[in-house]
Nucleic acid binder design. Structure first.
Lengths: 159, 159
DNA sequence: TTTTCTGCAAACGATTTGCATACAC
DNA sequence: GTGTATGCAAATCGTTTGCAGAAAA
């Protein structure tokens, strides 16, 4: 069970760095808390917030998303679509070992947990002397629903 | 031994798609052929070519790098530095299984060959029904030289 | 009251596009 | 000749920055 961050965590971590708690920061975190499993871009976050509130500057979104990432409440992910995306971090350090499965038919993003990479990283160190501190892994392909709907490797020519 | 593409391959593949062979296309491919193992951005390619020739439009570089990638002579890679990079493809389909090791101290990019991911991809299919067609894997950390020069996880605070 | 924040608009860097000219076929 | 490619400049897209006013501590 992945325990999730709350607004209290936000307040604590802001104080620890002499940053101020603002409604904007709270609302941005709230957007992610209310949407577990989603991978939102800055633009999407602003879209959600501007629907509910009058003016919500893009710069504020960018600045605070970055801040929340620094505070390790969010995690930045690059799905290769040209814009940065973010998801709520979990309190478990194992969240590091979840990889993204990106469906090239419908765009849906799912996740896969695994620690196979630990072995790979050890063997990288042994063979190359390269000490891995972080990794980024993305798998592209067809999700179950799209495969059942006729997409997939065997139908790949059905462009 | 990875066999490398040549200008003849370029000509053949251009013809097959009724594209024309131009000096620019040839020169761009040549840049990559002469620099095996390098991961060049569009800007770097233009820089190299503009040193040797008078005018070489950025748009031409972008359009042709993309074309060469479509023709599978080049491979696009995203090292997370905000610009697309490219490397010469090899004729072996196994080139797919080389991963990039990115040193966060000196920026050097090295490579690591491995087929451990095949097992992972199989287990993704079994557990999620997701059919992987491609993957992107990057490892960040410290290369041997930088570790020996005092960088590395144990000295990470030496920012 | 002091410092940090916000929102706007302008700046930015990578990439794309429109268009007239130049070149490969 | 005909159609594709080139080079330039302007446009675009995501993101960052400068700055004056607003709000948290």
């Amino acid at each position: 069970m992945a325990r999730i961050f709350t607004v209290d965590d936000l307040r604590d971590r802001l104080q620890a760095r002499q940053h101020k708690m603002t409604p904007q920061r709270q609302m941005i975190l709230q957007v992610f808390i209310e949407r577990p499993g989603e991978h939102l871009s800055a633009e999407e976050v602003q879209g959600i917030l501007r629907d509910n509130f009058d003016s919500f500057g893009m710069a504020t979104v960018y600045r605070n998303i970055e801040l929340l990432t620094d505070l390790e409440l969010l995690q930045k992910i690059d799905l290769g679509d040209g814009k940065a995306r973010y998801e709520l971090n979990t309190k478990e350090p194992t969240s590091h070992n979840h990889h993204h499965l990106i469906c090239i038919a419908c765009g849906k993003i799912s996740e896969f947990n695994d620690d196979l990479l630990d072995g790979l990283e050890r063997s990288i160190f042994e063979k190359c002397g390269f000490e891995v501190t972080d990794h980024q892994v993305k798998f592209f392909g067809y999700c179950q629903e799209c495969r059942e709907a006729g997409y997939g490797a065997e139908n790949d020519d059905a462009d």
